[in-house]
Amino acid sequence: MLELAIPTLSQGLLWSILAIGVYITFRVLDIADLTVEGSFPLGAATAAKLLTEGYDPITSVFVACLAGMAAGIVTGILTTKLKIPALLAGILTMIALYSVNLRIMGKANLSLLRMDTIFTLAGFISDDPQNVALFVGIVSTAVLALLCYWFFGTEIGSAIRATGANPRMIRANGINTDNTIILGLLISNGLVSISGALIGQANGFADVGMGVGTIVIGLASVIIGEVLFGTRTFWRCLLSVVLGSIVYRVVIAIVLALGMPPNDLKLFTAILVALALSMPLIQAKFKAMRKAGE
């Protein structure tokens, strides 16, 4: 069990970048954005393709981020300028990206075996690949979380936060909410793509199907983090999401070790998120019942 600690931790960190992306749409903008399911494999596919073409790992991750941002802009334009409901706009981009990802890779699966990735680049840290993965996870998560903290503390960032909280209020204060929504989706999907690019390299392949269920994984991390670690300030929220992602990986590792078939993983995650999302209602019902009992 203990020998799984470091890989679980680094998986949690790499996935936490996706969770931060989901947090930005789901909590900050108050939109459930399904683009994630397409922009995650988009990041992995873009990075993998560039790596096989001989580009260096940093460039690959950077371009993957740009690709994710472009996907975010598409969803943003669909939902603001063309007034398509956000949920549907995300689904449309996600489906479109399936074809785009196949085109990028030229096939459904691209192996990165024996190729130089960001993890070989960071190989100077330690001879043990587990430690290298942990190092990459810590550095990338810390840099991106700090960047998010800075950005959402700026004037533009605070306009995006206010857009999710009260669009009428922020419009009355001179902000074009179309622009803030598009910008928020851009940042979110950029992060998700980076996460996809890193996880693709960690796993040694990019696969067109690897995005299935990522939105639920992101939501699970966000909710677990909020419940366990609180939401008092924006910094606290970011930290909670990262820790939530790690806890989620730990929970998965434990249930797998206890003998749950890996095929049931998505079912388990979906039930977990459904329970967590219905918690407020269940709590209220429970309280009402207790009151009635007295």
Partner: peptide, 8 residues
């Protein structure tokens, strides 16, 4: 005025 990237 337009918001910018200075600390809010």
């Amino acid at each position: 005025r337009r918001p910018n990237l200075s600390w809010s």
